[in-house]
């Protein structure tokens, strides 16, 4: 019984083994590796649009990962890598959109709605209270 339980637990661990699409890459330093990983996480694969570069197995994603790897090893900054991608594939590839007039509503819309909701809430509460005060 205990054995069976251990088997099941072992199986569960097997199932959650991280499946990574990354090819073998030799980074010059840990920092480069970390930077690479965070970049491929937040850049969107242009071919399979609901995946980031890190998850995608499409041939263009493999090429772009290789390109980013090369750029990092050449000493390019994160911003330079992002600019390189945006110049070729547009702001579309950014999972974290830039702050600009086009993305203003995207970034601040929810806060504006929240503020409007709060104002409406306060107005309703205050007016209800006034009415209660008048009736009593």
């Amino acid at each position: 019984m205990k054995n069976a339980f251990q088997c099941v637990v072992a199986l569960m661990f097997f199932c959650v083994l991280p499946v990574s699409a990354e090819q073998e890459m030799d980074f010059r330093s840990e920092l480069h590796k970390t930077r690479f990983q965070s970049l491929v996480m937040e850049l969107r694969c242009p071919k399979c649009q609901n995946q980031n570069l890190s998850d995608s197995e499409s041939s263009i994603a493999i090429d772009l990962r290789e390109q980013i790897f090369q750029m990092i090893e050449q000493g390019k900054t994160d911003q330079e890598v992002v600019d390189y991608m945006v110049a070729r594939y547009g702001t579309f590839v950014l999972y974290r959109p830039q702050h600009s007039s086009a993305t203003f509503l995207l970034w601040y819309g929810p806060f504006i709605l929240l503020a409007l909701g709060l104002v409406a809430f306060i107005v309703v509460v205050v007016s209800n209270r006034k009415r209660k005060g008048q009736s009593s």
Partner: peptide
């Protein structure tokens, strides 16, 4: 190598 493809921003 597909480098020109990347420069043109192709996806496939």
């Amino acid at each position: 190598l597909g480098h020109f493809g990347v420069d043109m921003g192709i996806t496939g």
